[in-house]
């Protein structure tokens, strides 16, 4: 309810823009979390799905006039399809851990190079979505409209995560994360289960990419498929708490809040955000490996034991 009322109270474009980014990356972080946090398969190349979603809707909208709302759906399908391909190839050959991370990174890079050289993606110049305001066109005169779309996307992702935690698939995914051999011994089809995880993750990430396209009305290979997107997506759940429903939301708020603060204090020097992300990642992994949700959980447990005493 509070989230729905925000645009009426908060009339600043800057803060709405900030919240849109937070919500978008909360959703993307949850998408990554499904594969990385719950299933334990760390991807360094979620840009492959993000970029595919972004380009799918851009190309179809500009070239064939496909409605952007349908663009979100086709982007989900395209992201899921690329995820299926990446997942099939890497899981079939038993790639785990850093090998899986590297192969996903490689896929994203290959796609970036392809997008850079192909004709229909506009090459290195990228694609501009023509301005044509209207709800039917997923273009809004003020940021409130985008805010609601981002909010819906974030809620969708969180609900998917919440449902997974209460399902057989989710239980099997967590079993794979903890111990793949033991999961297999207990009748878990680990290959099929990992494929489902990566497809769900890829489809959601594809939607995020499509939203990005229609929000900024511009896409190029560096934005869509660059390693920056992959890193930003994976940082969110790592900061917030891997394998938790609310971790990505908390992580996204902190990551972008701190990022904004850093920009204000130090100016928008190129590469600054990457340095900032790197430092943040090191600090988190060293001091809070369970993320923000882990800290919340520890404080709650401490107050409970105090209440008992």
């Amino acid at each position: 309810m509070v989230a729905l009322a925000v645009p009426y109270v908060l009339r600043s474009d800057f803060w709405l823009g900030f919240l849109i980014t937070v919500l978008l990356f909360a959703a993307l972080g949850m998408a990554w979390n499904i594969l990385g946090g719950y299933t334990g398969q760390f991807s360094f190349g979620h840009a492959a799905f993000f970029g595919t979603g972004a380009y799918t809707t851009a190309v179809l909208h500009i070239g064939l006039g496909l409605n952007p709302w349908l663009g979100l759906a086709t982007a989900a399908a395209a992201g899921g399809l690329v995820a299926l391909l990446v997942g099939y190839l890497s899981f079939r050959y038993g790639l785990r851990g850093s090998y899986f991370a590297l192969i996903t990174l490689a896929f994203a890079e290959v796609l970036r190079i392809l997008a850079n050289s192909a004709e229909f993606t506009g090459g290195g110049v990228g694609l501009y979505v023509p301005l044509d305001l209207g709800i039917a066109n997923l273009q809004f005169a003020d940021k409130a409209g985008y805010y609601y779309v981002a909010l819906a996307f974030a809620v969708l992702s969180l609900v998917v995560g919440w449902m997974l935690e209460r399902s057989r698939l989710g239980a099997q995914m967590m079993a794979i994360r903890e111990n793949e051999d033991a999961a297999q011994a207990l009748g878990v089809d680990t290959f099929a289960c990992k494929l489902k995880a990566i497809v769900i993750s890829g489809a959601l990430t594809g939607i995020g990419g499509a939203f990005y396209t229609h929000y900024y009305l511009y896409i190029d290979p560096g934005i869509a498929y660059g390693p920056g997107v992959s890193v930003e997506i994976l940082l969110v759940p790592i900061i917030g708490g891997l394998g938790t429903v609310f971790g990505p939301l908390a992580g996204s708020a902190v990551l972008h809040g701190a990022g904004e603060l850093a920009r204000r204090l130090m100016g928008d020097a190129p590469g600054l955000s990457l340095i900032f992300y790197g430092v943040l990642l090191v600090v988190m992994v060293r001091f809070m490996p369970e993320g923000l949700m882990g800290v919340v959980w520890r404080i709650r447990r401490r107050s409970e034991t105090q209440a008992d005493a």
Partner: peptide, 13 residues
């Protein structure tokens, strides 16, 4: 079904 000689619990569950 088999069990493992070196036990393989899902530690965090």
């Amino acid at each position: 079904v088999r069990t493992f000689q070196v036990v393989q619990p899902f530690g965090r569950l």
